[in-house]
Amino acid sequence: MNFSVYWEHADAVSKTLYFVLLAMSIATWTVLVLRLLGTRQLKQIAYAQLSKALTGLKAKFAPLNFEQRKAVAEQALLRQIATEKASAEKGVAVLGTIASLAPFVGLFGTVWGIFHALVAVGKSGQAGLAQVATPVGEALIMTGFGLAVAIPAVIAYNICTRFNKTLSNELQDHAHSLLIDTMLQQDSAAKTEATAAQKGLVGGQA
């Protein structure tokens, strides 16, 4: 049975389920393509935001000692990492939902097709192939549609989840590097100021 025969015999419920699965499939491929195309850009933006988060704090470090500066910088980095991870998670929940629901939508279409087959048998009083072929074929097509939507959604979900884990690890490493560089710069600046102050004090006493 080809698709035109199925569409001709499908009722409103079956057609509605078809469009629901079609919308799910479009959403899955859209999220996956956008994520794959924006992978490098998302990482670069996240790195830039981490650097910006520390740059904005440098002016406030002056009255703080080393431990206080470190604590403030760590909190700023952790907050920014959480923000970037939340941004990277956009769309992943949609993929997970589609992967979970699509088989059940297809299963509902299968049940609906079998129901039509039983109704046809009841009306004719015979369980012949002519009475059940079209409804059973409709049921099998809906099962195939559900799997065709669910399988790519599961794969896309796993790809995005793996990318997010990798991004999280890379952000942690980059944040540690930024923290070390910032603390070394601040410590060096503090020592320079202390040395200059001592020289000034000695010169004033002389």
Rank of each mutant, 00 (worst) to 15 (best):
L64V: 00
R162G: 11
A27Q: 05
V149D: 02
G106P: 08
L118R: 09
Q172M: 07
K70W: 02
L129S: 12
H9N: 08
K15F: 03
R79F: 09
T110Q: 09
L107A: 01
H9E: 11
E67W: 06
V105D: 07
M142K: 02
Q198E: 11
Q68V: 09
A102L: 01
G203A: 14
L42E: 13
E89I: 10
L36F: 01
K70F: 02
V119N: 15
L42G: 15
Q80C: 15
S87D: 09
S14Q: 12
Q44W: 12
T195G: 08
Q44R: 13
A190P: 00
A139D: 07
V132H: 09
Q131H: 14
V105W: 05
G106I: 05
A59L: 15
K90N: 10
T192R: 08
A76L: 03
V121G: 06
K52G: 13
A46D: 04
M24W: 08
E84S: 09
Q186N: 05
L95M: 01
G109F: 00
L54F: 00
L78Q: 12
L34S: 02
L118S: 06
L201G: 05
G56A: 08
G122E: 11
Q185L: 15
V31H: 02
T110K: 03
G122V: 08
A130K: 14
D181V: 12
F19D: 11
K85S: 07
P103G: 05
R79Y: 10
T182C: 07
V149H: 00
W112M: 04
W7C: 06
F19H: 12
A88S: 13
L64T: 03
A130L: 13
E74S: 11
D181Y: 09
G106L: 03
A133N: 14
K52C: 07
Q198D: 14
G204N: 14
P135S: 05
I180D: 11
T55F: 13
K70E: 11
R162E: 03
L140R: 07
N2F: 05
L118K: 05
E89R: 15
V105R: 07
L147E: 06
G38R: 01
G128L: 13
N65E: 14
F108D: 06
V154H: 03
G122T: 09
T161G: 07
V202L: 12
A102R: 00
Q49R: 15
K52L: 13
M142V: 03
L57G: 06
L118G: 03
K90L: 10
G137I: 01
L140F: 07
I159G: 03
